[in-house]
Structure formats: structure tokens, C-alpha cells
Simulated assay, not measured.
Amino acid sequence: MKNILIVGGTSGLGWALANELVANEQVENIYIIGRTLHNEITNSKIKFFAQNLLVNDSSYFKQFSNIDALFITVGAGRVAKFDNLSEKEVNMEIDINYKIITKILKQFYSKIQSSDDFKVAVISSIAGMINSPLFSVYGASKAAVSALIQSLNIELEKNGSNNRILDVKPGHIAGTRFANNQEIDIKPAQKVAIEIIAALEEKKQLLIPNYEETYKQVIDRNRNDPHEFGINSYDYKIDNNRVTEKPQIKIGYMSGTFDLFHVGHLNMLKKAKQYCDYLVVGVHKDASHKNKTVFVPLEERMEIVRSIKYVDEVIVSLPEDNEVRNIIPYNLLFVGSDYKGTERFKRYEEEFSQLDDVEIIYFPYTKSTSSTQLRAAISKDNKE
């Protein structure tokens, strides 16, 4: 393995894999794709690419045409009753745990089935093999990706390729989450990373870490009586307070007039979506707060914004952005850096400092086409 791509490598198992692989002298480049980098990169072999995989299509991966190894470690889910999952969360879990992985494998499939050695490992989950109440969507989506891998490996064999896709089915791995930007001990994840690399070298198609010690008996119990296993699993999660009521999805909010829509607006929306799973945009009824008039009616501006692929929901904005939290419980408020330090946003910062699930993201001003420039040009033409 010389040039390696790790999708979802900014924390936990993906980061552990990067740290193990980078020590190999034969490795030249490790490309890591993730939304946010939790760690400091100190090795020049590692290159980080910030991307929201929920937005970008598979063509994004064409730039990594030189790779000879692929690790897909992305995953999302929470322990919760099905009726407590929002439709947003259900869509996100299916997209991340199955659809995105399928699209990535499709993008690199010509390499996978070629005569050249190409190593692939995909992280599914033990939850996809057993009755997983209170983890239903996560388990089902992981089961789907395992079924995909099994079928593709048969196709690869029948087509004469020596390459196979390694399906890694871990259970809980300590050190795969971050709290207050402080990394938990990732030694357990590093141990699994070493197992994955060894299994790839041996061209295995399935790896269940801690199989003999833990998961063999779990799988056997489920096979012998799935119903009883499911009941016990449900009770265990409830009794041990494993159920989480707080949605895992990150909701972002941005407001604006979006009159005379231009590339500057598009770039702001694209940047906002990079930070969140679900982006809500509030469109101002008019521009009276700036003592300006608008050229495009509210309904048309909302329809334009709604059609942008980075936007998930559009509402009519409220006079104050903090008031929107009463109807949209957003976690991130996006705004231009020119608002930082204003009385209004100092007030917001003070209010949000009392909460642990919301923050303001200030985007630096970048030169591009602006509505002010367009208004000036239109006014000039009208005068002439």
C-alpha cells in the first residue's frame, strides 16, 4: 500500500488506521476525508480534505485516482426508540451507513476488479448481524452494506479478480468519540486497526474483532433464539441507560435576504452545509433592516434558495435569529464575520454561552459578486 484513502478518518478507528499505516515506510500518501479534523497532523504523508459526504456526489473521489488502498470507516447512529428518531435522522443514517459507502465502492470498482492489487476495507457493524432493537435503522443499514459486500465479493471472484472487500464487523470500540474536543484513549481502536491491516494482507473477507472472546457467544445466542435475544438486548439497553433522547443530527441555521441570488450566496450556503447535517435557511421578508429595497419577491427568493442542493429547509426568517431556536432547535448559527462584535451578536453570544448545544460560526468575508454591486449596476442601467 503506497497511496491510501481513508473516508471518515478524522477520529476513532479511521484516525487509528492512519497512525498505524503512516509508520510503514512503503506508504507515500494517506488522504483523509472528514468533516472536521479533531487531531493535529504532524506527518507530511497525511493530507486532510474537509468534506460533507452528505452533499458531495461520488465524482468528488475522482481526484484520488492514484490510490491502491481504500478504507471506509464512516458511520452514524444512536441508541433510541424508532419513534424517537426524526425523519432527518433516519435519512442521515441510511445515507451515511449505506448509500455513501455504495457510491464510493462504485466509484472505485474498476480499480477493485482490476488485475492490480487493490485493498479495500469497509467498517460495518456487529449490529447488522443480530437482532438490534433500539438500534434498528443503524443495524439495518449496516446489514445492507454487509449484504452488498458479500455479493460484490462473489462478482469479483467470478470475474477473475484476486481482490476482495474486507467486511469489518466491530462491536463497541472505546476511544471512537470525542468530548469537549478532548480525545479519549484510542488504544482499543489502535488494536482493531492492527487487526484490520493484518486481515487485508491475508486477503480475508470478514473480520469480527474480539470474536472468540465476546462476539461468538453473542452471535450464537441470537442464532439460537432471535426473539429472546432481542428481548434481552432491549432490556439491557434500557436498564443500563444506553438510550439517548438527544438527536445526533447537527442542525444549522442561516438567515439572509438572498435578493439577486449570486455565487456569493451559493458559497455561503455551501460552506454552512459543510458544518451541519441539516441546513435551515431563513429568508427575510424584505431588506428594510438595511434600508434597502428588494427586486425579487419573497416567494421567489424562497423558491430559489429551496432549490439549492445544500439547503434542506427554508422558512421565513424572524426578526431575531435567536428566536428561531424556539421553532428550529439549531446547533449552529452561521453569519458573516462583519457581524462579529455587534451589539446584536454579543447578545447572542452571551445567551448561547449558557447552553451546551449551540454556537455561532462566523464566516470570513470573501471577495465575490455582491448584491450591492448588482443593485448598483441595475440602478445605473435604469438611469441611463
Rank of each mutant, 00 (worst) to 15 (best):
K81E: 08
N66H: 14
I104L: 00
I96C: 04
D117G: 02
I94G: 00
L70N: 09
I101M: 05
A50R: 09
T102S: 13
A76K: 13
A80G: 02
S65T: 09
N66V: 13
S58Y: 11
G77P: 02
G75S: 06
S44P: 10
N66W: 05
D83N: 12
L85M: 09
G77F: 02
M92V: 00
N66A: 14
T73I: 06
E87I: 08
I96M: 04
D68G: 05
N84E: 14
I101E: 06
K103D: 14
A69C: 15
N52F: 06
L85G: 00
N91Y: 15
S110N: 14
I94E: 09
N91P: 09
Q63S: 11
K45M: 07
F61C: 07
L85D: 02
S110R: 12
L105V: 11
D95C: 12
S114Y: 03
M92C: 00
Q51W: 05
N84C: 11
I96E: 03
N91A: 15
K119G: 10
D117Q: 12
V122P: 05
D68S: 04
D116I: 08
I101N: 03
K81V: 04
A50P: 08
F48P: 06
S44H: 13
M92T: 00
K106H: 11
S86A: 02
K119R: 15
F82E: 03
S58C: 08
I104Q: 00
S59T: 15
V122K: 06
K62D: 14
D83K: 07
T102M: 11
